[in-house]
Design a protein around this nucleic acid. Structure first.
Length: 152
RNA sequence: CCAGCUGGCCGGGCGGCCGCGCCCGCGAGAACCGAAAGGUUGCGGGUGAGGAAAGUCCGGGCUCCAUGGAGACACGGUGCCGGCUAACGGCCGGCGGGGGCGACCCCAGGGAAAGUGCCACAGAAAGCAAACCGCCGCGGCAUUGCCGCGGCAAGGGUGAAAGGGUGGGGUAAGAGCCCACCGCGCGACUGGCAACAGGAGCGGCACGGCAAACCCCACCGGGAGCAAAACCGAAUAGGGGCGGUGCGAGGGGAAACCUUCGAGGGCUGUUUCCGGCCCACCGUCCGGGUAGGUUGCGUGAGGCGCAUGGCAACAUGCGCCCAAGAUGAAUGGCCGCCACGUUCUCGUCGCAAGGCGAGGGCCAUACAGAACCCGGCUUACAGGCCAGCUGGCAAU
């Protein structure tokens, strides 16, 4: 494989972009009363993904919440649509395998646990660090949830 | 059984819950996002990383650009011979040299009598012969030596390398000066497609090394790369076409407006001629093109099996199969059991190394993630399997 075209300069990330989905699903209230299985069913509606470089650059201008495992950047888009999230893992963290695992664990943590902790109308960028791999998944989920909710 | 060599192969398995990309079907001529192009959303089914996907070092396909043909020169690459291959710097089989008891392994392996250049340090001398210590003869002085002239290159010493080696003859001392053997050069001829091998005979010995220093010879080579390229295509700015408004004078009309004539208008050099500079607003259409989107995109020098030919690389024939396609980039997260591994304890066998059995703990794997595709090379890699072969030990 050739040197990753140096396009998003040393930044590898992932995202989606549904944006609209579940806003009108009306299933949110029911979900709260249901107890979660140990394996962790998704707790909230899946947030959208950030995909465009321009979106990432925009979020860089937002609030930054630093942490040991990751850096979270938050930007209020000013609408009421579903939250969106993007992931960034720099090459400093490791080779492609390591970067993929970091991003996948973060994505999974968001999916099964932290989705409800995001506020509508916000864009989040999570910049993963190396320690994400060494941290037990439960602890990772808790930390991420706390950070997304905005506890400082 | 131990030690080793070569070739090939695998690189966790089963299960549970929750997810992701792509394809197909349905939902559906629905809704939503978007100016558009286009995309998103539910359910079901199918499918989804590697032997190196890596390094990006060679060779091709493909795309665009350049290019009338041929040659020469320059530059770059390759470099024993034959074969294989689409091609290669790859592979196979040979040859030569080197290493290993051996299986086997390693080699940038054309040309040094085409030319230039270099050969550090040491050494008298580094390529053309020369002579530091020496050896021998003669002469002189003189007495265990010194000086001069001449003849030598055996011995010492330096070095990676000093004009063949050993022995004998020979000599004043020596020397291929002569002889024997070894080495070396040339070489009729023989074998082989060839590299090359063998070699009658001849030669008294000449021709040091480095071409990974320039160079010579032979062969090969246009450039850039899927962020190539094609199509769709905003906003903003800019380009072009058309129409209208904006000028003056006259006429009609209450007005809106209509109509006729004229001149592009403004600024500027004194005026004419002739020049120079500047020129708005509205509407509409056209073309280039950015963001963005779609395609390119996986049926291919494709895999597997069998047969035939070949020592082999490989080729041919027949049959079967279709197997990732992302793009801020899917192939994942968590858990259980098992295997493997490792470690501890106990029992037992043994002189010991260790073997066997039982139980417990730990880890839950190494190197590493497709990015247009294919053939190679190189590098990384926990652990394991199979086959053949070599050298030992034991037994028969």
């Amino acid at each position: 494989m050739v040197s990753v075209p140096a396009w998003p300069p040393r930044v590898v990330v992932a995202s989606l972009l549904p944006a609209v989905i579940a806003v009108a699903s009306g299933s949110a209230p029911e979900r709260k009363t249901r107890s979660l299985p140990a394996t962790g069913k998704p707790k909230g509606k899946t947030p959208g993904r950030l995909l465009k470089r321009a979106d990432f650059l925009a979020v860089r201008g937002g609030e930054k919440r630093r942490g040991r495992l990751f850096l979270v950047e938050v930007l209020d888009r000013g609408d009421d649509l579903a939250p969106r999230v993007g992931y960034t893992v720099t090459k400093k963290v490791g080779n492609a395998v390591v970067r993929n695992r970091v991003r996948r664990r973060l994505r999974e943590a968001v999916r099964v646990h932290a989705a409800d902790d995001m506020a509508p109308g916000n864009d989040y960028v999570i910049v993963g660090r190396e320690d994400v791999l060494a941290t037990p998944f439960g602890q990772l989920k808790a930390e991420l949830s706390r950070r997304l909710r905005g506890a400082r």
